[in-house]
């Protein structure tokens, strides 16, 4: 990644007394979480984390509760003070920033959307959305004009004068989203934003995020414990366990070649045909496949390839960057679908 928006290097967060010594001490930092707790009473929530987030990318951090993902995202803007390491934003280390610089970063570069919304109950929707602008010192007319725009964008037009407790959960989170967007930040951080919502509303909100991402092209770091949400939204997904990164890659990387049994178990229930692309089932071109057989791109998701393969009397060729890399046929597609069902 040539010009990443955020670069995280050797990031540690250790809770507990004397936690600051642990990353430096090789004998301690190598211990497992349970051993570390037993030996030092400390809890390493984030361990030696390294990753880059590209401009305009949707980067998902996924893990079960307690895996350290929420701590990680808070370390990015130092809502939780990291123990050691570096977080580079636009080339500058956030950990080195002074109070003023940090505040500027929070005000203009990175906004956050929270699981429980964190709205101010004594302020109307309009005042909640314009809160960040007010904090920055924007004039009333200016911040209200901008906020009305944003409220329309997140689909809350007409609710400006409502108070948070008069809105449904989904609408409250739209306010949270609007508040994050109002400051026009480069990056938006999402901390499990939809896990407190009903499934139907969650689906709407996910669609909303995808739409906003398309329209505004912001960089997004999205924390979730829901794999299907991660696969749906993420350009790339980082899976965490006990504070450590287990695997980082695109959705079909994870499903197609899990790094270990943990990930394999994790992704076992995913409908693979919906996630995997053709490259994972491409076999060598068989003898006898006609040269004029239909061609599909290697990046096509398997489910989307089903009609073409079913309608073709012969195997279908797979092409990647203008080169034929192999072929697929009905058997290979069926095996993917069957495999999933067997696992389920």
């Amino acid at each position: 990644m040539s010009n990443p928006d955020i670069s995280v290097r050797n990031l540690w967060k250790v809770f507990g007394p004397g936690g600051e010594k642990i990353p430096k001490d090789a004998s301690l930092s190598a211990l497992s979480a349970a051993e570390l707790l037993a030996r030092t009473g400390c809890n390493a929530a984030v361990r030696d984390m390294n990753f880059d987030v590209g401009k305009g990318e949707v980067f998902v951090v996924m893990g079960l509760s307690g895996s350290g993902k929420s701590t990680l995202i808070r370390c990015l803007t130092r809502l939780i003070e990291p123990t050691s390491g570096r977080v580079l934003v636009d080339g500058k280390d956030v950990l080195e920033a002074g109070t003023g610089e940090l505040r500027e970063l929070r005000r203009r570069k990175m906004s956050m959307v929270f699981q429980h919304f964190g709205l101010l109950p004594h302020r109307t929707v309009l005042d909640n959305v314009s809160y960040g602008l007010q904090i920055r010192g924007a004039g009333k007319a200016q911040r209200y004009a901008k906020s009305r725009e944003i409220i329309e964008l997140v689909g809350l037009k007409g609710y400006e004068q409502h108070f948070p407790d008069q809105l449904s959960g989904g609408m409250q989170q739209r306010v949270g989203l609007g508040r994050a967007l109002a400051g026009d930040p480069d990056t938006i951080l999402f901390d499990e934003p939809f896990s407190a919502l009903d499934p139907l509303i969650r689906r709407d909100m996910q669609a909303e995020v995808i739409r906003l991402h398309k329209e505004m092209g912001k960089t997004m770091v999205f924390v979730t414990h829901d794999l299907s949400e991660a696969l749906k939204l993420g350009d790339r997904i980082l899976i965490m366990r006990n504070g450590e990164m287990v695997q980082c890659g695109t959705g079909d990387d994870l499903v197609g070649s899990p790094a270990d049994q943990y990930i394999a178990d994790f992704v076992s229930e995913v409908p693979r045909a919906d996630v995997l692309t053709l490259k994972w089932i491409t076999g060598p071109v068989a003898f006898g496949t006609p040269a004029d057989a239909p061609v599909l791109a290697a990046g096509t998701v398997i489910r989307d390839a089903i009609p073409a393969v079913m309608n073709s009397s012969c195997p279908v060729l797979v092409e990647d960057a203008g080169r034929i890399t192999g072929q697929i046929d009905r058997d290979s597609i069926l095996s993917v679908i069957l495999g999933t069902e067997a696992a389920a």
């Binding site: 809502l79 970063l105 929270f114 699981q115 709205l119 101010l120 960040g132 904090i135």
Partner: peptide, 18 residues
């Protein structure tokens, strides 16, 4: 005051007085 409300306000870069 709920921690998440306070955190939300902090994440927007409030000063202590604000």
């Amino acid at each position: 005051i709920p921690a998440d409300t306070r955190e939300a306000s902090d994440s927007l870069g409030t000063t202590g007085v604000q």
